[in-house]
Design a binder for these strands. Structure first.
Lengths: 137, 137
DNA sequence: TATTGTTATACTCTATAACTATA
DNA sequence: TATAGTTATAGAGTATAACAATA
């Protein structure tokens, strides 16, 4: 089996395990039912806020129409706020609300548990190598 | 940002890029419209055939009810065959058809292109390190 | 003309639980 | 009682294209 197929298959499987693990534990803290994608969006936004939707689209590799809908949902549920950019009338700048920040904190704890479990076969230097390689891609 | 969050986010993004790249190029060869998941199932089956559905479920981390449906679709479209296990009346053994093998070959070529593009920032030893780490998880 | 963001629609994938048949 | 597989259904995510407003 080719290296590319191995990487694709193993990554697919790993993501499924992360998603399933997240789903299993996150439903308890996801009172507003923002869902796994909503959680990932908030997580991504925390790194780059304040940011326009377009930047979130690029950062996450999702479709912009999908992002519009999920942003509306997250705004409606009070996890983020948007305001018009002073420089460009087309742009909405997004920022996490206090509630959004608190929720992201919980997601990160759960993610640490779930991903930590999956990474137990690796020693610390290998985990760091994995994180470094992924960041460069 | 914690290591686990970084890994989860980067992996999510990478998978999205693989899926989007696959979708973009694979529609041309996916005459029967088995879809991305159908392709991944065939890819996974090729490694372990002949295999019961349950083994595919474990290998891919998907739900078994979902696997039932996608197997039925793949069987109907002639990409795989199933036969009763001689040892256990509950078990269906799956095997790729000739058509299935040919299709998997095409998917692997496309995957090599798509994943190869994504991995360009890495040198060969790093790619190998990534593949090895993923295999161990 | 290009870019940011929105709307609409059809399709694919996922979670859950109840079910049958065999071991 | 446990396991392999099936069915049904509701919900979440994705692809695509057409659109309005601003640059």
């Amino acid at each position: 089996m080719s290296e590319a197929s191995v990487i694709a298959h193993q990554m697919d499987r790993l993501m499924r395990r992360i998603e399933a693990g997240l789903h299993g534990r996150a439903v308890a803290v996801d009172a507003d039912r923002v869902g796994p994608l909503g959680g990932m969006v908030l997580l991504a936004l925390e790194e780059i806020e304040p940011a326009p939707i377009q930047q979130l689209v690029t950062s996450m590799g999702r479709d912009k129409s999908q992002m519009t809908r999920i942003i509306q949902m997250l705004e409606m549920k009070g996890h983020l706020q948007r305001r018009q950019s002073p420089d460009d009338g087309r742009v909405s700048l997004l920022r996490l609300s206090k509630k959004g920040h608190a929720f992201v904190g919980e997601i990160k704890n759960i993610l640490s548990d779930v991903v930590g479990d999956l990474l137990t076969p690796l020693d610390p230097s290998e985990r760091k190598a994995l994180a470094d390689i992924l960041k460069r891609l």
